[in-house]
Design a protein around this nucleic acid. Sequence first.
DNA 1: GAGCCGTGCCGAAGATCGTCGACCACGACG
DNA 2: CGTCGTGGTCGACGATCTTCGGCACGGCTC
Lengths: 201, 201
Amino acid sequence: MPKIVDHDARRAELAEAMWRVVYRDGVAAATVRSIAAEAGWSPSALRHYFATQADLLIFAMEHVIAQSAERFAAESWTGPPRETAQRMLEEFLPLDRQRRRAAEVWLWLTLHAQVDPAAQARLSEADDGVRGVVDVAVDALAAAGLVARGADLGAEKARLHALLDGLTLHALVRTELMPPGRLRALLAEHLDSLTSARDGP
Amino acid sequence: MPKIVDHDARRAELAEAMWRVVYRDGVAAATVRSIAAEAGWSPSALRHYFATQADLLIFAMEHVIAQSAERFAAESWTGPPRETAQRMLEEFLPLDRQRRRAAEVWLWLTLHAQVDPAAQARLSEADDGVRGVVDVAVDALAAAGLVARGADLGAEKARLHALLDGLTLHALVRTELMPPGRLRALLAEHLDSLTSARDGP
DNA sequence: GAGCCGTGCCGAAGATCGTCGACCACGACG
DNA sequence: CGTCGTGGTCGACGATCTTCGGCACGGCTC
């Protein structure tokens, strides 16, 4: 009976407006009002599609993660496993402004999740997406026989994942000490350590 | 001529009040009002000692870091270097509620530093404190001959530091996957990887 | 011992934020 | 062609950080 709008499309539109604001002015500028202005709506209109600000940011974050997942699925990922793993994991490092902004949003969500169980749950799902890529990368290395027998794959995945997020954090807080080249080099060094021969059981 | 107050002592008192609030209710509850109430002052009084909320949190963070540094300096750190390094680094992991809360504050500051150059500068100094401890730990291992010749000490320090902060982040966002025991084990695994024989140049 | 005046502190106000409720308008269905 | 539900706006509320004007206390000077 009433006017019908494609909610999913509208949500995506608002999420993109949010990313434009974030890319331009940083996550601190991602207020409900500024995002609404960017999208050309009144602040109240957003409430029809996102009950709360955190919902919008989570949706936007899931949006880019889903896009990343599509890119991962689309690419063939042939070639040397070692270089492939490096390329896959570099996707998550803040090597350019865009990914740096995404890391800021990620940080905002992480902090917010400390007090919002709903955000916590959905952030965990998104986190699983990243963890899944790390798993794939490590498994591919192991399947290629590049990881020493006896290595604890579960622990290696957790360690690599932690290193990835730690590097991201350091890139945010100490940009001058962590230029893109150093981020890549440290990731490479870790993969070297992972793939070099180590004592089996 | 006027009433004289020991500003440093008052600042320390307010910082301790802040930590009580944070410990009890989390960093989100660390508003100027709640901290003032906890300390028994009016919100305006805080402005005499901290120009802004970020200043208070930074001071409080530096406060605990300074205390940690004192503990580090006080302890003799004798015994096997490998176990010593583990103990030193575990100080920075959120293994109990107190350190978890500290990590939340750290996260808040990191986010805030993205828009506040002053906070950014002072946070960098605090970050150097942590980096210094990591350096000491790795240097001690190297001095004991436990790190393979040819290893890039600078890179190893950066990698260990990133791992430390990454583990902290994961402990905050995925507590159920990162209980204290697993945090310790992953740190130990990394130190094992660092101290096990690796290819020299 | 008396007065001055600067420090310390408070209360209220300003600005901005997220969120909510009341109200209007359009348009698809009966 | 009328109905009524969805979509949208406006205004307001409460909370936040920060700023401003004013009051009071208490050391220093005379």
